[in-house]
């Protein structure tokens, strides 16, 4: 839920990166964090296991600039991708304003992508959201690997509602900011209607 503070003249929005385990959600955030000027970002908080797998969430606040005299601050979250952390995923979707689904382009991860996408729809519904009504972007990550499914086939399989689709290699930053911009624009556009 967007939080508009007239006293501090701030618009705060929540964007969640969703997707199967090891698809690159945390890598997206890490790249945004590493590439952003210090004054535009807060700390990158990672609640991770000892082996660096996301346990609860990763979080970073990002300031994009001012619109109509209001600072726009995006709170970026990732969910834990592993199947058994579903309770945590549900909690993180609370109050979401926009979702990025990060798909793993490798052939052997196709089933995991589909399962995670179903899980996203289910969990959104539990929180009272409809994916069709929510700002949403699909990112096809790991495009640099040799065993990837062609973009056209992957899009055909995973695209839900004509949402923008971006090819990405999150570890070197390719497509990361295009994805973020696309979802942030949709969130702000939504603000004009509500």
């Amino acid at each position: 839920m967007t939080f508009i503070n007239y006293a501090s003249r701030e618009i705060n929005c929540k964007i969640v990166y969703y997707g199967p385990g090891l698809c690159g959600k945390t890598t997206n955030l890490q790249h945004i964090f590493d590439s952003t000027a210090p004054q535009a970002k807060g700390k990158l908080i990672s609640l991770a296991t000892e082996t660096d797998r996301t346990l609860f969430f990763d979080f970073m606040p990002l300031e994009l600039g001012t619109v109509r005299g209001f600072k726009t601050r995006f709170h970026l979250y990732t969910v834990p991708g592993q199947v058994y952390y579903d309770a945590s995923r549900k909690l993180i979707l609370k109050g979401v304003d926009g979702v990025v689904f990060v798909a793993d382009s490798q052939e052997e991860r196709m089933d995991a992508n589909v399962e995670s996408l179903y899980n996203l729809e289910d969990n959104l519904q539990t929180q009272g959201y409809d994916l069709n009504q929510l700002p949403y972007v699909l990112q096809l990550n790991k495009r640099d690997l040799p065993n990837v499914i062609p973009m056209h086939d992957l899009t055909h399989e995973l695209q839900k509602k004509g949402e923008p689709v971006f090819e990405a290699v999150a570890k070197d930053g390719t497509g990361v900011f295009d994805t973020l911009k696309a979802v942030a624009k949709q969130v702000l556009t939504e603000l004009r209607k509500t």
Binding site: F3, I4, Y6, V96, D97, Y129, Q133, L134, T194
Partner: peptide, 15 residues
């Protein structure tokens, strides 16, 4: 559907 924004007015902030 995304939910309506949560709006904090200056007067409420001061309270």
């Amino acid at each position: 559907m995304s939910q309506s924004p949560f709006i904090l007015q200056e007067q409420q902030f001061l309270k």
